[in-house]
Design a protein around this nucleic acid. Structure first.
Lengths: 157, 157
DNA sequence: TATTTTTATTTCAAGCTTGAAATTTCATGC
DNA sequence: GCATGAAATTTCAAGCTTGAAATAAAAATA
């Protein structure tokens, strides 16, 4: 929390600067995201949502319940249903029934899913390294620090 | 462009940090964006795409062609068709035929569209000011500078 | 002029996303 | 046991988005 001294300048410019920051943040984020989507589609016939779900699953060898996935990725339940359907059709994921609960399913990556994701993840990391290649360590650490500050302050909402 | 000295340390940690930066950037951006979408829907029965198109139109009193809008917003032509259709149904925008060219249309805000946008824009600006309220001027200017650096380096792609 | 190419836009299918409603199952309290 | 409410998931309608194909009109060229 920043303290506003009694003799502060009018706040107006700060609010304009915040707006300017948001527009730039959105633009940068969208530029990178679009490039990643484009490459996933063109080079791997995949999509970002599918990648995100596989990424979550790859970190949970014993699988995740639908609701756990949607909580992790901060998206709706119905959304995950559709994406897991797709991954299942493609042979990358599997719904396994949970012993004690006939409502729930654990979703796991198949062997094929695991190896496909390993490939995707490696490509993804190298794309990011390439796309953000113009940033040196100082830029990167500086932005990470500011973003942590931002995310913390967003968490209060 | 950063020069890599002959005796540089292995690049691996930098690439990991770039990936970390990207994940944080995406997360922060999505958090803010979701909040804006939520408020546009709940408080103004509107959406971010509609707001973006109105915003572009509001800066062009003489109107914009469909293709100009899609270029400005960096989205597909077909997308703009649908959004302008919506705005037209809602009475916020108007397609005006271009004298010399029967293919093209100028899209303009109606008076109702202008006043609706003025209200939306004011709300939007105050939301951003509130949501980014945890950032002081130093944070804001620091991030803007880093983001400019990033966007410039992205432009090379 | 007639043909070809380019430009402006729309249409379309496929996919993602949400929030709300519907289902099914589980857990709790009576 | 039985009813009630909570939880896990799916279904659904509406909207956004894209890239590709279709239209239509203008411009360029032969």
């Amino acid at each position: 929390m920043s303290i506003k001294p009694a003799n502060a300048k009018p706040e107006e410019p700060l609010s304009k600067e915040r707006l300017r920051l948001w527009l730039k943040l959105l633009k940068a984020s969208n530029l990178v995201e679009e490039e990643i989507r484009r490459r996933l589609r063109a080079r791997h016939a995949s999509t970002l949502p599918r990648f995100d779900v596989m990424s979550a699953l790859s970190r949970a060898p014993e699988g995740l319940k639908m609701s756990e996935i949607s909580k992790l990725l901060r998206v709706s339940n119905g959304n995950i249903t559709g994406i897991v359907d797709k991954l299942t059709e493609e042979g990358f994921a599997l719904r396994v029934s949970v012993p004690g609960d006939r409502r729930a399913h654990q979703v796991c990556l198949t062997e094929r899913g695991k190896s496909a994701f390993a490939e995707l993840a490696a490509a993804h990391e190298s794309w990011i390294d390439e796309i953000l290649g113009g940033l040196d360590l100082d830029d990167v650490l500086g932005m990470i620090q500011r973003l942590d500050h931002l995310t913390t302050s967003l968490g209060d909402h």
